[in-house]
Simulated scan of single mutants.
Amino acid sequence: MPDDVDEHIGARIARFRKQRGLLQQGLAMRANISKSLISKVECGQKPASAALVAACARALNVTTSDLLGQPFIEELRRDRLDDLIQPIRVGMENWDVPHDQEIPPRPISLIRVDVQRLLVQRREADYMPMARDLPAVIDELVHAIHTTAGEEQRQGYECLANAFRCIFTLSWNFGYIDLATVALDRIALAAPRADEPGLAAMHAYLRAQTILSSGRYEVGMLVIDQALRDLGGAQMRRSEDLSALRGSLHLRAAVIAGRAKDADSADARLADARGIAQASGELPSYGLTWGLPNVGVHAVAIACELGQWDQAIEISKSVRIPRDWSRSRAGHHWMDLGRAYFWANRPEKALDCLVRARRIAPQQTRYHPTVRETVLAMKRRERVRSSALAQYAEWIGI
């Protein structure tokens, strides 16, 4: 059954804490968090920040997914999305052993068209068709790299790395963190054979995302800075790719700093990214959403990481999202802003933002922990039953 309305992140922290035989003070000492904050989070008076979730997960020896309640199995089954995960798992079991197939693969140029379509679906958060097509594309690419050589084979590895990137996004957003980790390892194996420095930088960008969830912020920053140094001497096939990758890495570093509550470092990294974006303009390199609007939405997200809800709302007023922008990025922005409006005691605006996120990127929104936690908190605090909120809660499965 879907989680009970009371089973928010704080309630899960309390449940695991009691299973471990810990008092709130004991968990606070292990997680290096104040007992007062633990108490308020467990009873839903304060939001469970990503940093707090990571710290409590380490202290309780569980995964962040355990505390987030992911994956939301019943909801995935309802949408029949769980049926699409197992074929991907099977497809990920082999990438380095040649297939015994009599039918030759298509030319890499034709397979590349399919991979580019998958990357567009990834940016648009159109996950169902992407999940359906990924296993067959990976099988064909694995067959291709073992039956080609030279530039054809190099491009095959590049396509394979990008297919694994799609799997990373899909797995991460649906809460299958183990599968996302496998996809990350596959990118690391395929990227060097693709002889494409940008893929190595992309691997670092994604790796830092997984490190964020474990709370090892210093490691994440080291990974980002090493990738930036490597890009400094890289020969890119397109010079504009360098700007998009460098800027995106600085944004990831800014998020890490925000998660670590280092506002000064976060501001410095945002300034670095903003300077790059002002010089480069909007760029679609490596499927990234790069440009000044992305710097703006990251500034909003970082203010939320710091618990600066009013500031996040104020920053958002100067953010102008282009009409043709990435749906996944735009949807995430409205989720963040919805959370900010709720904790700034403006629940009507919060729901408006969540409705916009649903309209822009429904599959991403339905399965995102931020949305779930915000809606749970809104339901606990509502004094007069709202049919709009009830309908939205039913849509996400609570």
Results as ranks from 00 to 15, higher is better:
81 L>H: 09
20 R>W: 02
96 D>G: 03
263 A>S: 15
163 A>P: 01
190 A>K: 07
272 D>A: 14
378 M>T: 04
224 I>A: 02
393 A>T: 03
360 I>F: 11
144 A>N: 08
25 Q>G: 11
255 V>Q: 13
201 A>R: 01
382 E>R: 10
298 H>M: 13
223 V>D: 04
219 V>G: 00
332 H>W: 12
77 R>T: 13
166 C>H: 03
229 R>F: 06
361 A>T: 11
300 V>G: 02
146 H>F: 14
41 V>F: 08
133 D>P: 02
138 I>Y: 00
332 H>M: 12
231 L>F: 01
350 A>D: 09
262 D>I: 03
40 K>M: 09
321 I>N: 10
22 L>H: 07
290 W>I: 01
230 D>C: 03
289 T>E: 12
17 R>S: 09
252 R>T: 13
351 L>A: 08
243 S>T: 08
377 A>S: 12
60 L>V: 09
177 I>E: 10
234 A>K: 01
371 V>F: 05
232 G>C: 03
10 G>Y: 10
161 A>G: 09
157 Y>Q: 01
370 T>G: 04
157 Y>G: 04
254 A>L: 05
233 G>P: 00
82 D>Y: 06
350 A>K: 02
333 H>G: 01
193 R>M: 13
35 K>Y: 02
194 A>L: 09
367 Y>A: 06
82 D>M: 04
130 M>G: 06
109 S>K: 15
331 G>V: 06
384 V>F: 01
184 L>T: 01
25 Q>F: 03
